[in-house]
Amino acid sequence: MEQRINFFQKGRNAMQSLSAIAAHLGKSDIQKNILHLIYYRVSQINGCAYCLDMHSKDLLATGETAQRLLVLDAWREAPFYSDKERAALAWAEALTQLKGGLVAEEIYTDVKNHFSEEEIIDLTLAITTINTYNRFNIAFGAAVGTYKVGQFALN
């Protein structure tokens, strides 16, 4: 797909606001591998090839296994995700696939058992932000495959 608009260049002001969010999340107490797993899973749901390429490269560079990435779409059935990762993934899916109304109580209770209130706020911010990036990439196109590890580091 050819890039329709270089939104990082033409929408510099808008993208700077997203960069400020990314900088905040880079300082969050949430483990970076959990953030990248969330970014990868949400990008799977939304079908964002650029973000899948980006986050798979970043995850693999930090020691994530190919097996966990390849099976992430079926994380509920796979035995190699921690309870904390499962809570974050369920929260990410619930916020990405909105069904109207509040997130199910059992999903909220599970995320609350593994994350502090501040971390849940940051996790929610991370999920809504990757959804935004996915939509920009899908709307305007992105040069899939060009991402270099750490190019947009979480700090």
Rank of each mutant, 00 (worst) to 15 (best):
residue 1 M to F: 04
residue 4 R to E: 04
residue 4 R to S: 03
residue 4 R to G: 02
residue 5 I to F: 02
residue 9 Q to Y: 05
residue 10 K to F: 03
residue 11 G to M: 06
residue 13 N to E: 11
residue 13 N to W: 05
residue 15 M to I: 14
residue 17 S to I: 09
residue 20 A to Y: 02
residue 21 I to F: 01
residue 22 A to G: 10
residue 23 A to R: 08
residue 28 S to R: 10
residue 30 I to P: 01
residue 31 Q to Y: 11
residue 32 K to Y: 12
residue 32 K to I: 14
residue 32 K to L: 15
residue 35 L to I: 15
residue 35 L to E: 04
residue 37 L to Q: 08
residue 37 L to S: 03
residue 41 R to K: 15
residue 42 V to T: 13
residue 42 V to N: 02
residue 43 S to R: 09
residue 45 I to Q: 11
residue 48 C to P: 14
residue 50 Y to C: 02
residue 51 C to K: 01
residue 51 C to I: 03
residue 53 D to S: 01
residue 56 S to F: 00
residue 57 K to Q: 04
residue 59 L to D: 00
residue 59 L to V: 01
residue 60 L to S: 00
residue 60 L to G: 00
residue 61 A to C: 03
residue 63 G to E: 07
residue 63 G to I: 14
residue 65 T to P: 00
residue 67 Q to K: 15
residue 69 L to Q: 07
residue 71 V to P: 00
residue 71 V to D: 03
residue 81 Y to W: 10
residue 86 R to N: 02
residue 86 R to H: 02
residue 90 A to S: 06
residue 90 A to C: 01
residue 94 A to K: 05
residue 96 T to H: 14
residue 98 L to F: 11
residue 98 L to W: 09
residue 101 G to W: 15
residue 102 L to F: 13
residue 102 L to Y: 14
residue 103 V to D: 00
residue 104 A to I: 11
residue 105 E to N: 10
residue 105 E to W: 00
residue 106 E to A: 12
residue 108 Y to W: 06
residue 110 D to G: 06
residue 111 V to C: 07
residue 112 K to A: 15
residue 112 K to M: 12
residue 112 K to I: 07
residue 113 N to A: 13
residue 116 S to F: 12
residue 117 E to F: 11
residue 117 E to S: 13
residue 119 E to C: 10
residue 120 I to Q: 13
residue 120 I to Y: 10
residue 122 D to K: 11
residue 124 T to F: 09
residue 125 L to E: 13
residue 126 A to H: 13
residue 126 A to M: 09
residue 126 A to Q: 15
residue 128 T to Y: 09
residue 129 T to S: 12
residue 129 T to I: 10
residue 132 T to H: 08
residue 133 Y to S: 04
residue 134 N to E: 05
residue 136 F to I: 07
residue 138 I to K: 06
residue 138 I to H: 02
residue 138 I to D: 01
residue 139 A to N: 08
residue 143 A to W: 01
residue 143 A to F: 00
residue 143 A to R: 15
residue 144 V to P: 00
residue 145 G to T: 02
residue 149 V to A: 00
residue 149 V to L: 02
residue 150 G to T: 11
residue 151 Q to T: 14
residue 151 Q to A: 12
residue 153 A to M: 14
residue 155 N to A: 15
